[in-house]
Design a protein around this nucleic acid. Sequence first.
RNA 1: GCACCCGUAGCUCAGCUGGAUAGAGCGCUUGCCUCCGGAGCAAGAGGUCACAGGUUCAAAUCCUGUCGGGUGUACCA
Length: 543
Amino acid sequence: MKNALSSALREILTTLNYPETKIVVQLPKNPNHGDFATNLALQLGGQLGESPRDIAQILADKLKSDYPNLVDSTDIAGPGFINISINKNAIVSQLETVLALNKNYGKSDFGEGKTAQVEFVSANPTGPLTVGHGRGAILGDVISSILEWNGYEVEREYYYNNAGRQMRRLGESVKSRYLELLGENTEFPEEGYEGEYIIEIAQILLDKNGDSLINTADNKVFKEAAESNIFLNIKKTLARIGLKFDTFFNENTLYDSGAIDAVVKTLREKNLIYEKEGATWFKATAAGREQDRVIIKSSGEPTYRLPDIAYHQNKFNRGFDLMVDVLGADHMDAYPDVLAGVEQLDYDSKKVKVIIHQFVTLTENGEPVKMSTRKANYITLDELIDEVGQDVVRYFFIMRGMNTHLNFDMALAKDESDENPVFYLQYAHARLCNILKHAEGQGYNFKKNTDLSPLSLDSEIQLVKFLLEFPNIIERAKDNLEPQTIATYLQSLAGMFHKYYAKERVVTDDKVKTSARLILVKALQIVLYNGLTVLGIHAPERM
RNA sequence: GCACCCGUAGCUCAGCUGGAUAGAGCGCUUGCCUCCGGAGCAAGAGGUCACAGGUUCAAAUCCUGUCGGGUGUACCA
């Protein structure tokens, strides 16, 4: 509907020889301002140096004479807004489209089958997933499905590293706990992992091997036991919130394939590598960065930047049209160097969209809790799911913009779980389903070409116009990769419906009116269902 | 010091990428169940959109500066 108006205006623009201008059509807040409004004349007035109200008059007249079936009336308001009233039948008849498309309503082929890869979570297997990881997990998953709804073919990928210092510490920690369980006198590693789960893993090893590992020189067994055990639990947790990855990418494969060496070699050929103080440096300043960075330490170990560059090269070579990296705010300073490296390898780094989300700050009784996997003072994602359930967890993480520090109080989450906004949405959906079921019991069923003219109340027209916004919302969510856009929209839609429901009765003795209203109800149910589906939240028929 | 993020109702946050009279939830006050589910609805109170300039027909939104909070600023990931 909005799009029809936009293209009509664009048409008029060219026939009248006006300069090309971005066309913005909006739903006015004030119902006195018509069904739709545009500021087009205001913009043109500025460009042409003519009176916006005069231009508005010309545009409005043309709109009315050229599109009599669409436009009922126009009005020039304020400094030069054009307020447009649309033929009510034209609006209401759009409901047919919604019902016809049903579960596909809102999908677009914008991506034209292009491929996208979304990398998220990417936590190394050193401990259980925390609520901090949860935010990135849900964000990445919903962004993935937003892209899918816009016609992309999406691959969800989890990148991890099971080598390196952190993992070595993990192995040492398990070994130490193992020795402790055997009553050996042992000192816990200074930077070791203190979580309970380490002891559990040690116990498993003890049950399986007895004390036969007591004199094992290296801690490979311990490390591997820890890794497989922890990864198993991570995957279990992910499954509990409806997350499934297409690929788990191990950083090690980049070493094995020689990709890492190749990156160094290429950069060296381009004269972007030099040695200093025993380390190997990447000349990031040549790519416009503040300072050069070490990519291979004097110990011979690469820093994370090098494998990250190789990893992105790998992504590019897999041919994705779009790559999304979902990262926590702690990576803020790291990714520009990686992108600079990628750029130097002659890839178009604009294909990589980096999504940075702020941390989840945990408070307990008003006291902020600093989260550290190593120190084990965190709340796990599992515990959170236990408390409030999968749907609430998902909604909680996307109802806020990713740039805000999410303030999470466990006690509050429990107490308010009954009043959580997610129930508001689910209740609206259940209500809609119930009306439909009730109507069915009264012998109503959906027929093509139902007379929709009884849908004439202001509230009904508003409702229809707003639910028809859904495809635009999905597209906007794709543009800003911000799931919150959808959550906010659904919240408003559900609110409008609840108001309508409280005031008007759908199923009455008036058969014609009831049939028309049922179409509206069905369309609302479809939009709510589809919206919740994009967010990965259940849309229950009963609660 | 530098980089990025944030500052909107008592609290938690929206605000359609610059539009018309600033929006919700929670909390507080008061109403609404013979009727499709009251997990809902209606009404009331609550605001210098941190502050100061600038850009223009129009700024919570864009630019600059100031103040306040957060996160980083490693040969850790």
